[in-house]
């Protein structure tokens, strides 16, 4: 029964449960296993369970504390007026409207640029490029490395290429292009994983019907991998939504008292607006910042929910 069993087990149903001496002298339980080893195994199990539980709780408790702190601090400040007002140097009048609009503009544009390019790249790498050639390996390694480059470095790149080089200036377009570069590697890698998960048997079935590669991609590969691709893409977009560093470098403003009307306008985004408020000397602005953080978190949770809903929708369609 167990390689830990020592000696012969006592006859079944014969004798009381509990410790019995064996010919090796070690106490045995009714299943013939060593009582001491059994005890030790149980203790070990309990200890590891405790460690894992503590680790899980650590993250959850910290998050709860943070949320509690922020929500408490924002009470009385987060209201409709806050959502619909432009920023102001008076904390009572300050609102988040221009940052919210700026964030939506930037993220919308980023999604529009990064998702198609990311999916196209992943499709090329997985379906068209010859695997194992030096070129495809080089591309693959570089994409993985790019995913690990600090965001501020992308800011420098964006400043050089989009703001100055292409002459887009300190516009939403420059910001969105920079953020697109930042999240492209993540989108590509997750989309590749999703494409790899398409069963070979389905692709074979499609090809065997005399269907071309592109028709197989649109008919089987993309529908099957769409949930995974979208989940990756939306999570990447959420990450971009919380970025401040690269946008500060490519010239997002800290104080914008108007709403952007086109991609060439100057702008600010939620994280920068929040950062700006927290660095004000007046105590009241800390509450304004908290209210801003709540807005940002709600926005992030909303996009994540959309990701989950989209995934479920496509999954149902495929099942």
């Amino acid at each position: 029964m167990s390689r830990l069993a020592i000696g012969t087990p006592p006859e079944a149903g014969n004798g009381p449960a509990g410790e019995q001496p064996t010919r090796y002298g070690a106490p045995q339980n009714r299943f013939g296993n060593s009582v001491r080893l059994n005890q030790r195994r149980k203790t070990k199990n309990r200890i590891y369970q405790g460690i894992l539980l503590t680790s899980t709780l650590f993250a959850i408790v910290m998050l709860a504390l943070l949320l509690f702190q922020i929500v408490r601090s924002s009470i009385g400040w987060l209201d409709w007026k806050f959502l619909t007002s432009l920023p102001s140097r008076f904390p009572e009048k300050a609102g988040i409207l221009s940052a919210l609009a700026g964030s939506l503009w930037t993220i919308g544009l980023t999604a529009g640029i990064a998702i198609p390019i990311g999916i196209a790249t992943a499709l090329y790498l997985e379906e068209y490029s010859k695997e194992g050639t030096r070129l495809s390996r080089l591309i693959q390694i570089n994409i993985s490395n790019l995913a690990g480059v600090p965001s501020i470095v992308y800011g420098m790149l964006g400043l050089a290429v989009f703001v100055r080089g292409a002459g887009f200036g300190r516009s939403i377009l420059s910001g969105a292009l920079t953020l697109s570069l930042l999240i492209l590697p993540v989108i590509i890698v997750t989309a590749q994983e999703a494409l790899k998960s398409v069963p070979l048997s389905l692709k074979e079935a499609s090809y065997a019907l005399g269907v071309s590669k592109w028709q197989t991609i649109t008919g089987v590969v993309l529908p099957f991998s769409m949930p995974g691709i979208l989940t990756g893409a939306i999570l990447a977009i959420s990450r971009a939504m919380g970025e401040a560093a690269p946008l500060i470098i490519v010239g997002a403003a800290g104080y914008v008292a108007f709403l952007p009307k086109s991609p060439m306008d100057s702008y600010t985004v939620l994280p920068i607006q929040i950062f700006n408020w927290t660095s004000r000397p007046q105590e009241a602005f800390q509450h304004v910042a908290s209210a801003g953080i709540v807005v940002l978190i709600v926005l992030l949770l909303t996009t994540n929910t959309i990701a989950i809903l989209l995934r479920n929708k496509y999954q149902n369609r495929m099942d």
């Binding site: 048997s201 389905l202 079935a205 019907l209 008919g219 089987v220 099957f224 099942d319």
Partner: peptide
């Protein structure tokens, strides 16, 4: 045309 060892209908 080809029919495979394991039934492989599309998930449609």
């Amino acid at each position: 045309g080809m029919v495979f060892q394991k039934p492989n209908p599309f998930p449609k």
